[in-house]
């Protein structure tokens, strides 16, 4: 099915660390945008999950971050950069069930060590780059077909 996209559509959302009340807003808006563009429901679902998890990671761990999206006829690319503590051991962080979230975050039902694996699972391309003490950048590409 042809999408209503000519060229590329891009934009970004500011994310504030610790701001649990607005969690999911960026992913909700992105979901709406993709729906309006006529993207397939399954693709939207994957993009929404990946974006929501990325948002949560910034809110849980970082002081602030920015989520940038780039939509073309073929795919959506989501790039999330944060000013956070960084990840010491990325392969450990990618392991399902591993988390460094504090107890109060776990009590909310977050921090189960599923965030990064969920992002990877729902992306066609996933990369993560982190510098301890500076921050983390996650890039995800989800193809439309």
């Amino acid at each position: 099915m042809a999408l209503n996209i000519s060229g590329a559509i891009e934009g970004s959302f500011q994310l504030i660390g610790g701001n649990f009340a607005t969690a999911g807003e960026a992913s909700t808006q992105l979901k709406l945008k993709l729906t309006n563009l006529g993207v397939h429901e399954d693709i939207i679902r994957r993009a929404a999950i990946a974006t929501f998890e990325a948002e949560m990671n910034v809110i849980i761990y970082a002081a602030a971050g920015r989520l940038h999206y780039y939509i073309t006829q073929q795919s959506i690319k989501i790039r999330v950069e944060d000013m956070g503590p960084g990840i010491e051991d990325i392969s450990l962080a990618m392991q399902e069930g591993y988390s460094t979230a504090p107890e109060w975050v776990r009590e909310m039902g977050w921090g189960a060590g599923m965030g990064l694996p969920n992002m990877k699972k729902n992306s066609d391309k996933f990369s993560i780059d982190s510098v301890v003490g500076e921050g983390t950048t996650v890039e995800m590409v989800i193809n439309f077909s």
Binding site: F20, A21, A23, G24, E25, T28, I49, F52, E53, M56, M108, G109, W110, A112, M114, G115, N118, K121
Partner: peptide
Amino acid sequence: LLSDVMANAGKCDIWITLQTHLNIVAV
């Protein structure tokens, strides 16, 4: 676990939980 619900719950499922905070609405 909210990430579990995001990963595995299906559309039009009813969700049974003891979580009560704001994020359950967004999920």
